[in-house]
Simulated scan of single mutants.
Amino acid sequence: MERRPCLSRRLALLLPASAAGLGTLAACGPEGEGSDTPEPVRAEDGSVSLDEVPENASTLVNFGGQMPFVLLVRGSGEDIAAYSGYCTHNGCALSQVQEELDCPCHGSKFDASTGEVLAGPATRHLPEVDVVVDNGAVRRAG
């Protein structure tokens, strides 16, 4: 009588986790490929050059510190407004997709130029953040 190979319990328990991991890896392409979500601009020294924030557009910036992600909205010249880069529903960090900010946790969407809620479950707009422009650099006030 020929004996069939047997799966150990340990190996049987690892198979679903391995398959899930492989599926996740297969869904990921090379960095930047297939994604229209730009990485936040990093403010290494606590400030970001005004040149890195295009006029009449918005840019998500990582200032570091207690609340690193801030959405900078620039009009023309040094006209800058700033909003929290965190969802008002559950505090998840937002990602910028063209003219809106999306919450990866529960699907809320915010207007990237005003911070207003476009889709819930969030019900409150993004709070303003105080920033200053000094010598061509934008930094958080205070």
Rank of each mutant, 00 (worst) to 15 (best):
E99S: 10
A57R: 02
E44W: 06
G120V: 02
L126M: 10
N56S: 14
L7W: 15
F69Y: 15
S113W: 01
R124I: 04
F63R: 02
G32L: 12
C87T: 11
V117M: 14
A26S: 13
G64I: 05
E78P: 03
R139W: 07
Y83E: 00
V41E: 00
T37R: 13
E33Q: 14
Q96D: 02
A26R: 06
T24N: 09
P40I: 01
S8N: 03
A20E: 10
V97H: 13
A26I: 13
E33V: 12
K109R: 15
G46N: 04
A137C: 12
T88I: 02
V131A: 03
P38G: 01
A19S: 09
A112Q: 03
S58I: 01
C105W: 13
R4A: 08
P68I: 02
P68H: 07
C28A: 07
G75L: 00
V53W: 02
R139M: 15
P68T: 04
E52L: 14
D45N: 07
V131Q: 06
G75H: 03
G65A: 07
T24H: 15
P127H: 04
Q98I: 06
G115S: 01
Q96N: 05
E55F: 03
L126W: 07
G34N: 09
A43F: 09
L72Y: 00
E78G: 05
S35G: 12
A43W: 02
V129E: 03
R42P: 10
V131I: 04
L25T: 03
L72C: 00
G107T: 09
G91S: 06
D51M: 11
L11Q: 15
K109D: 04
I80Q: 07
A141F: 10
S84C: 08
